[in-house]
Amino acid sequence: MDSQDPVLVTEPRPGILLMTLNRPRVRNAIDRPLAEAMDAALTRLDADPALTVGILTGAGGHFCSGMDLKAFPAEGVPVVADRGLAGLTRARRRTPLIAAVEGAAVAGGFELALACDLVTAADTAFFALPEVARGLIAAEGGAIRLPGRLPYHVAMEMLLTASTLPATDAARYGLVNHLTGEGLALEAAFALAERVQAHSRDAVHITKQIVQDTRGLDDPAAYTVQDPLSTPVFTTAGAVEGARAFTEKRPPAWHR
């Protein structure tokens, strides 16, 4: 990587924004410039009505090694405003995001993947939260999200011993949606993105918002939050088109 290369490469495709962490010499470790570039790209993803889904991956055979520890003494944790690490881990992002993982997804890199909605991974990839070994805490979602994504004792072993979880085991536990051969995680992510993209953008985005906003609530409270979001959807042109397409046995023609 040349020193002039962008730390984040963004490639818009029809309906999809591909974001590639581009610091391969340090396994795509997150410093302040990369965090700010990520935040800007994610904001663009939510703001552009032509984009239905985003894909996050890493250059050079690895996803992300987490926070750049060399930059940490001077820069601190590379959070952006109240949106968390790289503008993602604490944010309420509207657009579904897929992590395409090759190689290492560790520390903050794993926390980025946990903040995504879907995960594809090569069978040679691995995940870890080694913060305790560095005198740190997995404070950008690792300690909060992981026990809900894995069996409790498996998650606690990772958090308390800094042990590594192979992607093959992560897939077996349901943490990875699609397991691929080495070098094929991005291809699988695009296939998954196209499946998401085939549906109504508004319905997809609001479904994600309902999941985010009702997490941890009991049923009555969850319906109270959900209904103001979901009810208007049933009167939209998209809902009418979806019903007509089903009746006429044809693909829907969504208005993006």
Rank of each mutant, 00 (worst) to 15 (best):
A198W: 04
V80A: 09
E75C: 06
V154Y: 02
P151I: 08
P49T: 05
E248M: 12
T124N: 09
A138T: 00
V211F: 10
A125S: 03
R134Y: 12
T207Y: 03
D123A: 12
G141D: 04
A107S: 15
L175P: 13
L118H: 15
D202L: 15
A222R: 08
P232N: 14
L184Q: 13
E140W: 02
G87P: 05
P14C: 03
M67I: 15
A188D: 09
L56K: 00
Q197I: 05
H153R: 10
P6N: 12
L136R: 15
R149T: 10
A74Y: 09
I210H: 01
L56P: 07
S3C: 07
R44V: 01
D213S: 15
L175T: 08
E194F: 04
A47W: 00
D213Y: 07
F126C: 13
A99Y: 01
I98P: 08
L118Q: 15
G216P: 09
E157T: 15
V204P: 05
T57K: 06
L88Q: 10
A191T: 14
L114E: 08
A193D: 02
R90K: 06
E241F: 06
D218W: 02
L179D: 02
R145K: 09
S230A: 15
P147W: 00
A40Q: 14
E11G: 01
P252G: 09
R83M: 08
T247K: 09
G174K: 03
L146I: 03
Q209G: 06
R83G: 05
V79W: 09
I98M: 03
S163M: 07
A37L: 06
R134L: 12
D219G: 09
V204Q: 05
R93S: 05
T236Y: 00
P33K: 01
T43W: 06
P24D: 02
L21R: 12
M158T: 06
T247D: 11
T168Q: 13
L88A: 14
L18W: 00
P24A: 02
E75T: 06
M67L: 13
L97A: 07
T89N: 09
H255C: 01
L34Q: 14
E248Q: 15
L97F: 12
A170G: 11
T236N: 11
G174P: 06
A167P: 02
D169Y: 11
R94N: 04
V9Q: 13
T95S: 14
A188H: 01
R32C: 04
I55V: 07
L8W: 04
R90S: 10
G76L: 04
T43D: 11
V132D: 00
L51K: 03
A105N: 13
R195I: 04
G108Q: 01
A133E: 08
L150K: 03
M38H: 03
P130I: 01
R149G: 02
A29M: 06
L150P: 10
E157I: 01
A122H: 05
V106D: 01
L129Y: 02
E157G: 05
R32Q: 13
L159V: 03
A121T: 12
